[in-house]
Nucleic acid binder design. Structure first.
Length: 137
DNA sequence: TTTCTTACA
DNA sequence: TGTAAGTA
């Protein structure tokens, strides 16, 4: 099938399909006219690629274990485990970073309300205490 | 009409 | 990733 058909069957844009090829995730043949010719396997291949990209893996990482995954259904791919583990630690780091950003924002909100309270206190105090301001003379 | 490559208001 | 350009 040609790229247009594969795009329809997978829901992936033609642009992305060509990009995957550049990233060595798929290797379609070329017909005489230079058009990419995909086998029927391409459909599941692209779906697998989408799956791993959605899990946050880079195209480079995917290129590494894709073959094994497509044939052995992931269970017997030995070199895929370390990739998963590194991804997990990476996620832990991101979680920590996000936690810091979150607490930072929370702190900002607290200080805003704090300042507001102080300002309101000052305004209330000014009204109760009959302050006579001299005009200078 | 579809696909190809290259390049970017 | 989309899209325009100029082909084959």
């Amino acid at each position: 099938m040609k790229i247009g058909e594969l795009a329809r069957k997978t829901g992936v844009s033609i642009r992305s399909l060509r990009y995957y090829e550049r990233q060595k995730l798929i290797a379609p043949m070329r017909s005489d006219n230079g058009y990419r010719e995909y086998s029927l396997l391409a459909v599941e291949q692209v779906k697998a690629i989408r799956l791993y990209m959605n899990l946050g893996f880079t195209t480079e990482q995917i290129a590494g274990f894709l073959h094994c995954v497509l044939q052995n259904k992931e269970a017997f791919c030995r070199d895929i485990v370390p990739v998963y583990e590194s991804k997990i630690t990476e996620l832990d780091e991101q979680i920590q970073l996000l936690a810091m950003i979150k607490s930072n924002l929370e702190e900002r909100v607290r200080s805003i309300f704090e300042e507001r309270r102080m300002a309101e206190e000052r305004a209330k105090g000014a009204m109760t205490h009959d302050h006579h301001h001299d005009d200078g003379r």
